[in-house]
């Protein structure tokens, strides 16, 4: 009986693979059909992974303490929506969003502020690059000590984590406008501020959005890891670490699913805004030429 699950899952996986192999070879002129195939292939792959997971767990009778099947995680997710929502509000809406906005805004403003001083730029850029490579999450215990257990300390961690990528990218973005374009602005007798608004900021958007995208993942990681060091009894990181201790692995997976969806949605929104703002950039305009 149990091996039936396993064989069924493997059969489904092979079938899905075969369909995918066939789908990517379909040649069609129809734009809509092309788009459907483009979405269907990864979707089918994702579903087959879930089915395979379910089949392996049930087929080999893996105890749910080690790896719960997706169906069990789903039931747990549906049954504990209020808890998950409270965690989501604490971690995502309070810590991540606040910290993200403050960190990115601060990085952006500092980059503008040091724009006129090449000396400060030369000093800050290598340091910023260096700090970006450091395990910055390590400041979490210090921030928890300074700002208390509640969301303020998580905001502080997120601000520190997102500040440097934003600073470095904005500074290099502001340098992206070419000399000829700057000369043109100069012949128009444009002031520094006008050049900034009309030429250099638009040229910098791709860099800035690059930082915004990097930071969207960093912010969530920072907030969750900071909660491992101390938190009130609510929050995604808190839930993960306590439910692991109580061996409620299905709850942990449900929380991870929420974090994954939230992280992807956050990233997706930033990417959508990027497409709208930098519509002129080759990587957006070119569409799907690859």
């Amino acid at each position: 009986m149990t091996s039936g699950f396993l064989y069924g899952a493997i059969a489904f996986w092979l079938l899905a693979w075969a369909i995918n192999e066939w789908l990517v070879r379909v040649k069609t002129k129809d734009r809509v059909l092309q788009r459907i195939i483009r979405i269907a292939v990864p979707l089918l792959f994702g579903i087959s992974i879930l089915v395979l997971w379910e089949g392996i767990v049930r087929g080999f009778n893996i105890p749910s303490v080690l790896l719960p099947p997706p169906s069990m995680i789903w039931t747990r997710l549906i049954n504990s929506l209020p808890t998950l929502w409270a965690d989501f509000r604490q971690t995502f809406l309070k810590s991540v969003i606040t910290g993200y906005v403050m960190g990115c805004g601060l990085g952006f403003l500092v980059a503008i502020a040091i724009d006129r001083s090449p000396f400060l730029q030369k000093g800050l850029l290598p340091l910023g690059n260096f700090v970006s490579a450091l395990p910055v999450v390590g400041v979490a215990p210090i921030m928890v000590m300074w700002f208390g257990f509640d969301w303020q300390s998580k905001v502080a961690v997120v601000v520190i984590m997102t500040f440097f990528p934003m600073l470095v990218n904005t500074v290099s973005g502001l340098a992206a406008a070419s000399q000829m374009e700057k000369d043109l602005m100069h012949t128009y007798a444009a002031s520094w501020f006008q050049t900034l608004i009309k030429l250099r900021l638009p040229a910098a958007w791709p860099f800035i959005f690059n930082a915004l995208k990097i930071n969207s993942t960093l912010a969530l990681i920072g907030a969750i890891v900071a909660e491992f060091f101390g938190t009130p009894i609510v929050g995604m990181g808190f839930r993960i670490s306590t439910e692991v201790g109580r061996m409620n692995v299905d709850m942990v997976w449900a929380e991870i699913a929420v974090a994954a969806v939230a992280g992807s949605a956050f990233y997706g929104i930033v990417a959508l805004v990027e497409r709208a703002v930098t519509f002129w950039h080759p990587s957006v305009r070119g569409g799907q030429t690859s």
Binding site: V24, P42, I221
Partner: peptide
């Protein structure tokens, strides 16, 4: 076609959250 979108999507997931588990 099937793997690449997931590899990119997985970048957006706070993978460190799974670490303790």
């Amino acid at each position: 076609r099937s793997l690449m979108p997931w590899v990119i999507a997985s970048q957006t997931i706070p993978i460190l959250a799974i670490a303790p588990m």
